[in-house]
Amino acid sequence: MNAFIDQDGCIACGQCYDVCPEVFSAGDNGIAFVAQEQVPKDQEESARTAEQGCPTSVISLSDTE
Rank of each mutant, 00 (worst) to 15 (best):
Q52E: 15
S62E: 15
G27S: 04
F33P: 08
E51P: 05
T56V: 06
I5D: 00
E44S: 08
E51M: 14
E45G: 04
P21D: 08
V58P: 07
A32R: 04
I11H: 12
G9C: 09
L61M: 13
V23E: 02
A35L: 14
K41D: 15
D63W: 07
A3W: 01
G30I: 01
T49A: 15
F24T: 01
I59L: 11
M1F: 00
I11S: 13
E22G: 14
N2K: 15
C16I: 00
A3E: 01
E45K: 11
R48P: 01
V58W: 10
S46T: 04
G53P: 05
E65P: 11
E51C: 12
D28K: 07
V34P: 06
T64G: 08
N2M: 09
S46A: 14
S25D: 13
G30N: 09
P21R: 03
Y17K: 07
G9M: 07
L61W: 12
N29W: 05
A26N: 06
C10V: 03
V39W: 00
A50D: 05
Q7G: 11
N29P: 07
D63S: 14
C10I: 02
M1C: 02
Q36K: 11
Q15V: 13
G27K: 02
S57T: 13
A12H: 06
S60E: 13
K41I: 13
